[in-house]
């Protein structure tokens, strides 16, 4: 399962932060997830709940997921548009010379901890 792999990496990132900042307990974890990152948020939350109880620093943590909308940039007309609604073809000019500008990321934005 794809989500479990991401959870393992997330836990490692948080462990490293906990060590650098001398944290003993992480409360809230705010994660920014791109709309077309391929991450299923329900599966992700389930995987996290399964994993966190096995991790002392994380066992009481709550995951907050924020969605980053997917935006595509058009090379031909220099416009941007909603990826999910229009796909690869630019609705402004019909060009296919388009690139995903944002929406595939998975970023740990901030945490609440002590």
């Amino acid at each position: 399962m794809h989500e479990m792999g991401i959870v393992l990496h997330l836990a490692r990132t948080l462990d490293e932060t906990a060590e650098e900042e001398h944290l003993t307990k992480i409360g809230k974890v705010v994660l920014q997830v791109g709309e077309v990152s391929g991450i299923m948020t329900d599966l992700f939350t389930d995987a996290w709940d399964y994993f966190k109880v096995r991790h002392p620093v994380l066992k009481d943590s709550v995951l907050v997921l924020e969605t980053i909308p997917a935006v595509t940039y058009c090379d031909a007309c220099k416009g941007t548009y909603e990826t999910v609604k229009y796909g690869k073809v630019c609705p402004l000019c019909g060009s296919e010379e388009t690139w995903l500008k944002q929406g595939s990321e998975c970023i740990v934005k901030e945490i609440e901890a002590e």
């Binding site: 991401i6 990496h9 997330l10 490692r12 990132t13 490293e16 932060t17 900042e21 944290l23 409360g27 809230k28 994660l31 990321e105 998975c106 970023i107 740990v108 934005k109 901030e110 945490i111 609440e112 901890a113 002590e114």
Partner: peptide
């Protein structure tokens, strides 16, 4: 509790 800004991609440690 204090707020810590992390701003790291989840795969940063993998990289």
């Amino acid at each position: 509790m204090r707020l810590i800004t992390v701003n790291a991609t989840v795969t940063a440690s993998n990289d």
